[in-house]
Design a protein around this nucleic acid. Structure first.
Lengths: 154, 154
DNA sequence: TCAAAAATGAAAACCATTTTCAGTTACAGA
DNA sequence: TCTGTAACTGAAAATGGTTTTCATTTTTGA
């Protein structure tokens, strides 16, 4: 459940862009910064809104392009909520699984290494080659539960 | 890994529509039939194409509406592949987890009940209330692997 | 400083999904 | 079996998120 600081994350990402042969433009850095600072899974529009605080001339297209590059570099991942299927969150190295709050979109990482065995068993049995896996637990975080009770909502 | 026959599935689904207060129109039955018969996760357009064989006057809108009802009734579920995020597959009662072939879209179900403990642990630790979970293993099925080798592709 | 390549943003295109609405159909009750 | 009505349907239009296009700007290496 550890989280690296947003500065460390940003530094790591800048380095990843550089060594991937991508230029570090101010537009890109603005997008990186938003995701580095956020503990939520955000959609492109929300990232756009926040990044424009840093870079007012930023275009939405560049947000999409930068996100795509981040996915390619393994820096961010798509998060698939029931309601909305195209949110992006920072990748936390070594922690593959996600706990997603359906209300606030905040994301926690955890690792369940016992899954390796399960995946091996399933694969071996069927001749299937597992290339990727998704384990996402979706629900309500403690804070949102409290807030919803206060508001009388379900 | 058991699969009920498509006839049994269809009968179950008809009953579910009935007892849910939904009329059994020929348009709906055409959509139900396609998913009942398929072992793949299909997108709306493909379901539309196949269902028109049974009901040529069918409209795409009705496919979307019927799929939505099936989700509400718990008869089908959305499958989220990396490439395409809006496919639908039949729900296999009691088998919550999916093995999805990224090439042919075929779907296998399995249950990993050891996950319950993991989910409890994560939830208890953080005050998070888990409402839903997704475990999908994505990769290549044995058949597609063989076919791809034959074609010389990766 | 300069040229080439990469990256950008605005506008247009695209396409899956949803909404609207007038006509059709299933089905409960007579 | 017939009938009235609410549920349902399909065509067309609207919507909205994402991608493409392209002329301009920026970055970077020489």
């Amino acid at each position: 459940m550890a989280a690296s600081s947003s500065e460390a994350r940003l530094a790591r990402w800048r380095a990843a862009f550089k060594s991937g042969g991508y230029r570090l433009t101010s537009a890109r850095v603005a997008v990186l910064r938003v995701l580095a600072e956020s503990q939520q899974a955000l959609d492109a529009t929300r990232i756009f809104d926040r990044a424009r605080v840093y870079e007012p001339r930023l275009g939405l297209v560049t947000v999409y392009r930068t996100l795509e590059t981040m996915l390619a570099l393994g820096l961010a991942q798509k998060v698939h909520c029931p309601a909305q299927c195209a949110r992006y969150a920072a990748v936390e190295p070594g922690h593959n699984h996600l706990l997603v709050c359906r209300r606030c979109g905040r994301v926690w990482y955890f690792s369940g290494d016992d899954l390796g065995a399960l995946m091996q068993a399933v694969a071996g049995e069927s001749g299937f080659r597992v290339e990727d896996h998704w384990l996402q637990l979706i629900g309500l975080c403690a804070r949102c539960r409290a807030e919803m009770e206060t508001e009388g909502a379900v």
